[in-house]
Design a protein around this nucleic acid. Structure first.
Length: 571
DNA sequence: TTACCTGTTGTGGGG
DNA sequence: CCCCCACAACAGGTA
């Protein structure tokens, strides 16, 4: 049976672990355009017919300023040159299933051109590590393949969106453009610019909500303009709204008018980027555990949904952070890029549960989706959400930035094997369990190192495959007891927390082979091992593996005091 | 005003 | 495996 909430309490929902891109910082890769990929000037290449005379006139009018002469001229121009195009702009939402904006772009009288823009901003300003670049590259290839099966393709273009699109509007004779709503700050500014440019070019824009279960603006309106800051608060609002919109069918074929010529379909200038194009040095990559793409996402979803009793009894807090194989679904990277629709997952879960959402516990997989929704909703309506300063919901805490502390944490050199193993797994594999994120986030901030949560967030942003801006910032505030969560005296022990679920330290031995030979009773605190034991293990602490960067008990106590003071000051 | 309840996921000890 | 408690005590909502 589905895990039903105890008693009459109505709770349900969830979120997927932490992260997404934001401003500042440096990327570790540079973008190189493949040779010969500069956008072709002038409208060549489109020999197909389409559209009707009336449409042509109105478009020509709008675009050229509406002069009467233009109308007459338009009638004289051969039809073929004036066939209309619709652009669907892929950003997130890198999928064909449940993609309302893509479906809105399908019009039998217009050629469909699905576009992905390799925006130099993302390359330079977003903190995207090699694992996530690889995931994106794989995702784009998968998307292109799926589109080709429909008689279309993915058009990957390089450049700033505000420079790319005006060129494409002219070159492709674009009449309409669709995209999925993105609530992140950079995306909003970008999309406003493109919407304005579209108007100037007479291009109609259609935006659809698809990355979140609900329209975040509608959620806020329903809550009378207030941003829900608790799970229960959000749940109450969602209950008023009802179920999220039904999933939209995946297009299984395209009308003839939407298809592109084989010449265009095989033009290499629009091909998805290779890893080299993205500046990724292949030798820097570890084996790929979570391949990107919609195909993989749906396969993974089904693999887990088949395990019905597992799904029904799933309780996030009871899953294991340090198992050798993931104890949760690892669907988060697919949700982040929109390879998997959260609504598809939502309704698939309801099928498996066989009960109403209100009967499903908040620790369930469905609950994780509601937490995701909460962070998206709050992130969409809170100024400076990804920083402490100027962030109205974030407690002001006098963190003390120390580069050495941050670096030790970031590269798994704190001397606490449990913490270091997690950070090493993160760097290598791009994914760590949600509770492992808790342990290292608490350790970096209020627990031990007293470093600003923003610094930790940026590291996650680079290294996580599922780095999702709203979730990352929200969870870092949560774990640092800066917002959402306030019981700061609950501190994860960097020693005991891991020991509960992995008493032999197999996880540590896997990711820190140097410590492999330590006996079980010292594996979580090897500095306590007598020198003879260290020698026997072939690993001298302070030489082959770092001494603990802080005394956990002392640091914890001191930080508790500081938290108390910060909370007092905030009143 | 005060008391109480609830809030996804602490630790360490005990039964 | 489960639950309970003390630890020392947060915010925000409700009665």
């Amino acid at each position: 049976m589905a895990k039903v909430r105890e008693d009459s309490k109505k709770r349900d929902s969830s979120r997927f672990t932490f992260c997404s891109p934001s401003a500042r910082g440096t990327s570790h890769v540079t973008l190189r355009a493949p040779s010969g990929t500069a956008p072709r000037k002038g409208g060549g290449g489109r020999g197909r017919e389409g559209g009707d005379g009336r449409r042509r006139n109105s478009l020509t009018q709008t675009r050229r300023g509406g002069g009467r002469k233009d109308c007459i001229l338009a009638r004289l121009v051969p039809r073929a040159r004036l066939s209309m195009t619709t652009i669907h702009w892929f950003r997130k939402g890198l999928r064909l299933h449940d993609n309302p904006a893509l479906v809105a772009a399908i019009d039998e009288n217009k050629e469909l051109r699905p576009v992905f823009v390799l925006d130099p901003w993302f390359v330079r300003e977003s903190r995207t590590g090699v694992n996530r670049w690889r995931f994106l590259a794989q995702t784009l290839v998968d998307l292109d393949t799926s589109l080709k099966q429909l008689g279309s393709r993915l058009f990957v273009v390089r450049g700033k969106p505000e420079e790319v699109f005006p060129k494409l509007f002219k070159e492709w004779n674009v009449e309409k453009m669709t995209w999925e709503v993105d609530t992140e700050p950079y995306a909003r500014t970008r999309d406003e610019k493109i919407e304005k440019l579209s108007k100037e070019h007479g291009v109609k824009v259609v935006c659809k909500v698809g990355h979140t279960l609900y329209d975040t603006e509608k959620v806020i309106r329903t809550n009378l303009g207030k941003t829900p800051l608790t799970f229960q608060g959000l749940e109450g609002v969602l209950k008023k709204i009802g179920l999220p919109p039904k999933v939209v069918d995946r297009p299984t074929s395209l009308p003839e008018g939407c298809k592109i010529s084989s010449e265009v379909a095989s033009d290499p200038k629009y091909d998805p980027p290779t890893l080299k194009d993205l500046g990724v040095v292949e030798s820097d990559l570890e084996p790929c555990l979570y391949p990107g793409g919609e195909t993989e996402a749906l396969k993974r979803l089904e693999k887990y949904m088949e395990r019905k009793s597992w799904v029904r009894s799933f309780e996030k807090p009871k899953t294991i952070p340090n198992s050798l194989q993931p104890s949760t679904t690892v669907l988060s990277p697919y949700l982040k890029f929109g390879c998997l629709s959260c609504r598809t997952m939502y309704y698939r879960l309801l099928e498996v549960y066989g009960s109403k959402p209100s009967q499903i516990a908040q620790e369930s997989l469905l609950g994780q989706l509601t937490f995701r929704e909460m962070f998206y909703t709050v992130g969409a309506t809170t100024a400076n959400f990804d920083q402490m300063e100027g962030n109205a919901i974030c407690r002001q805490i006098p963190w003390k930035r120390d580069e050495k502390m941050l670096e030790a944490w970031e590269f798994g050199k704190t001397g606490f094997p449990f913490i270091d193993a997690i950070m090493i797994q993160l760097r290598k594999e791009g994914w760590i369990h949600h509770l492992a994120r808790h342990a290292v986030a608490c350790f970096l901030t209020r627990g031990d190192l007293w470093q600003p949560w923003e610094d930790g967030m940026k590291v996650f942003e680079e290294l996580l495959l599922d780095a999702d801006w709203s979730l990352n910032a929200g969870n870092w505030m949560w774990l640092s007891a800066s917002a959402f969560f306030h019981r700061y005296f609950r501190v994860y022990s960097p020693i005991e927390f891991g020991r509960k679920t992995d008493p032999h330290g197999d996880y540590i031995r896997k990711y820190i082979p140097k410590l492999k030979k330590f006996p079980d009773n010292y594996i979580y605190e090897p500095w306590k091992a007598p020198l003879s034991v260290q020698k026997a293990a072939g690993c001298i602490i302070g030489q082959d593996y770092p001494r603990p960067i802080v005394d956990h008990q002392k640091a914890r106590e001191e930080n508790l005091k500081r938290m108390g003071q910060a909370y007092q000051a905030g009143k």
